[in-house]
Amino acid sequence: MIEISNLHKSFGDNHVLAGIDLSMAKGESMVIIGGSGTGKSVLLKSVLGLITPDSGTILVNGKDATAGDRDAFLAQFGMLFQGGALFDSLSVWQNVAFRLMRGEQKLHKDKAREIAIEKLRRVGLKANVADRFPAELSGGMQKRVGLARAIAAEPDIIFFDEPTTGLDPIMSGVINELIREIVVEMGATAMTITHDMSSVRAIADKVAMIHDGIVQWTGPIDQLETSGNPYLDQFLNGRAEGPIEAVR
């Protein structure tokens, strides 16, 4: 489904991605973990074309992600942004239905609103939220609206960028469960980046750990605790001592 080979990206002297190799099968939920500033977001944005990599290849369904029709390519994706990235000037339902009301598959306003309300219900929000504006919602509700927007057009691939950042543990658990349920019922391929281990355990089929610009370890979730990888062990146990340098 997604094949990333030898991906490099630098910002000045900072080599954020130094040869990432990663592959994801269709319907798989991959969670990418790593410390802050290790290039997880850069990797995700490179796949979407929001950042242009210096070198390397990204294949989605066997096709080069940087070539061909951008709109058709992006139509396969849904994305939940870290801060929600909801459009302030639009109401909640207009945010959710944004893609549905544009492009070649454009739906009538009434139909788009109906689907938006259905998606809002799916993420646990009532229909009366539909006409409110993002600024009137709590952080947890904004995440849910972002999730509803990401799944509104029923994409094949969904990206989650730090889905639980800024939420309390209970709300984090709720969002994690929602993500897992939705990914399974849609049969979508999911890529999540996080450093929240509760998200990893709730969402992942497969885990990849990034450090120093490369994938240090990748494997199924049930091998997470027994990998023997020093980078992964240090990260999982939150130790300051180990191969990952921790500045005090």
Partner: peptide, 16 residues
């Protein structure tokens, strides 16, 4: 502000 809060990136991912 839209750029800082990733709303511009969100527009792109929504094919806009």
């Amino acid at each position: 502000t839209m750029k800082v809060t990733e709303q511009l990136d969100a527009l792109v991912t929504l094919s806009t």
